[in-house]
Write a protein that binds this DNA or RNA. Structure first.
Lengths: 372, 372
DNA sequence: CTGAAAGCGCTAACAG
DNA sequence: CTGTTAGCGCTTTCAG
């Protein structure tokens, strides 16, 4: 005796009667005896589906879908009716279902090496601006500079069938590269351009940064130069910068007086501070230090302030990144500034643009501070 | 004449013949005439599904599913066969489909206010450790401290049907609160505990932090205290700290000599530097400054270094957060350190634990540096 | 231990 | 402009 489409009937039971009988246990809804699952918070509210909205508005599901996605033409009256019903029911679309049905995802996978200093967050901020604008949502994994971890993350992210994926750097395991190549979605490699990319590459030349740093120091007359860095086997890009720096040194018949590699882990600022201390205890007569990045350089700078080492007359300092803070210290640090926000935005834009594979050299700027 | 299940047949066409005929256009695969969609990178490789694996291994789909999820009992022989087939086919499971079918997600929504200084990344690192361990993936949105933006993000994240959601702070729009309450998943509010939570709250008391800061400065004999902060209407937690600080001042018959609110936007370090400069130009005789956080305090510290203001004899400085860098400056900053990694981990753990709603005061530690 | 079949909630033809 | 219908790829009964 159930007239179909009658008015105030319980949407839930109606729907169940009409469709699935797969979870017969759900019938126990009103006699909660053996509810194993902890009821979490609040009531065990059944989730509102597009079918519920369609029934409430007395229209077809596809019409609801059209209205909700603002696509296809629907009469204003119908539209209003549907919107009203959706609002009353407090409907939240299920994008999982939508993605599966349309086979087009609004998810973007992102693998970052760490959340250490501010450079990664800044790049992410740039990426996110663009993604958000276009209605995409980032799914993030942190590799901790571990290629195997990165590989696993890539696989994991790919299983969400993202519309694209962003990774850091150009060095990946063979399997990771293969997966990125074969996954059928756009991939962007950020930060570095020294090497062979997979699809889209946006970054700046690490080797060139190293070169320019060396040229700057040499041009200023520094000759007895030391290096303070962290583990370059872990941070490959720092290694490339070091390489570029050394090439120029060699071209000028020079080499580092001494080098200090701080084991990774712990604060980089502290690493720079301790690294410089150790270096200075070992070597005298150094006139400049090249740091693997600004964090380390900042640590070195603080050490100098602390020990009345005059900068740059006693010792010159040079970093990498151009972190905001390095231009606010009493003496702004000499460093190389990379446009991180811009880089993130460019990467995301290219990812979404659908253009051909490219490599974009986003460049850098050598900032002459007061420490050289 | 097609024997079903023959050996080296093209999996793609076989499958298509057997199932869907919804996208007839796909038949044009071999005659790419009007392919509108840009072919992106590489070949238009058809995506391998569980059906392909099942056919290759000559077993049912459900058995493949069991093996891949390591659930239910399957004979070793069958298991091997399936694993081999999956590897050969380079199968990557489609978690979108899996999530829809099982109605249980491995996604966790996270709304962060910004990626500004390092505190958010550190909390995220803690959260991520726990999530990763348990096979969950974070989906992230950035609200830029805008409640409306947060509301939209929450809705958007909820549409991915996450297993849980983490947000910053306790202040949300009414609709955001309603959505979080009614969405049926666990929600964690991080950072602050001063207020009414929705489900799980993990953080430390901002007001108490302000109180303790004031008590510390007063105990050290400072009386002519100024405040340098950013926009407290935007950063509600900073506002609560200020409030707590002022209560203690009032209890002691005091009040700020002067306050300087730096408009948000731009670097906080710079804000602190400029804010202090302006304050000192306006007021003389100040003996201590309370900063809204360490970034600002660091800027103030640099200003003092730059202008030969002796710390703490001429002026004392106090911050908030206990950023790593503040203990590495020549004079470590006096501040309040919050256990951010721990907080993130605790939040994520509670989210996944399935326990009852709670509020966890993660506490803080007043660090007496050399600036007070 | 294994397979067949029925959906998860939504989108996309295709008719009306 | 609108409704019907057939899946998207996977998981989950429910029988063997």
């Amino acid at each position: 005796m159930q007239k179909p489409g009658q008015k105030k009937q319980n949407a839930s039971s109606q729907r169940r009667a009409q469709k699935g009988k797969r979870h017969p246990a759900v019938e126990k809804e009103l006699t909660p005896s053996l509810q194993t699952e902890p009821a979490a918070n609040g009531d065990r509210a059944r989730i509102v589906t597009i079918t519920d909205v369609a029934q409430r508005a007395r229209v077809g599901e596809s019409t609801v879908s059209r209205v909700l996605r603002n696509q296809g033409s629907v009469s204003q009256a119908t539209r209003d009716k549907i919107l009203k019903a959706a609002a009353e029911l407090n409907y939240v679309p299920n994008r999982i279902a939508g993605t599966l049905a349309s086979m087009t995802s609004k998810l973007i996978g992102i693998v970052i090496p760490s959340v250490g200093n501010t450079v990664v967050p800044e790049v992410l901020a740039g990426v996110n601006m663009v993604l958000e604008e276009a209605g995409f949502q980032p799914v993030i994994g942190v590799s901790n500079y571990d290629p195997l971890r990165e590989e696993i993350l890539i696989e994991s992210l790919l299983s969400w069938r993202p519309a694209g994926i962003l990774v850091a750097g150009l060095e990946h395991t063979a399997r990771a590269r293969a997966m990125l190549k074969g996954c059928g979605v756009r991939v962007v490699e950020l930060l570095d351009i020294d090497g062979e990319g997979i699809d889209i590459v946006v970054g700046s030349s690490q080797r060139m940064a190293g070169r320019k740093s060396a040229e700057h120091l040499l041009a200023r007359g520094y000759r007895r130069i030391g290096y303070v860095g962290h583990d370059i086997r872990v941070d490959i890009r720092a290694g490339k910068r070091l390489e570029g720096f050394q090439v120029v040194m060699r071209e000028n018949g020079l080499s580092f007086v001494d080098q200090e590699f701080h084991p990774s882990g712990g604060s980089s600022v502290e690493g720079g501070r301790m690294g410089l201390e150790r270096l200075l205890k070992r070597q005298s007569g150094l006139d400049a230090i090249y740091f693997s990045n600004d964090d380390l350089a900042l640590g070195g700078y603080f050490y100098c302030l602390d020990h009345d080492i005059a900068i740059p007359s006693d010792l010159a300092l040079f970093g990498y990144n151009g972190l905001e803070i390095t231009r606010l210290t009493p003496q702004p640090l000499s460093t190389i500034r990379t446009p991180r926000i811009t880089m993130g935005m460019a990467g995301a834009n290219l990812l979404l643009s659908g253009g051909p594979s490219t490599t974009v050299d986003i460049g850098f700027e050598l900032v002459v501070g007061a420490t050289t």
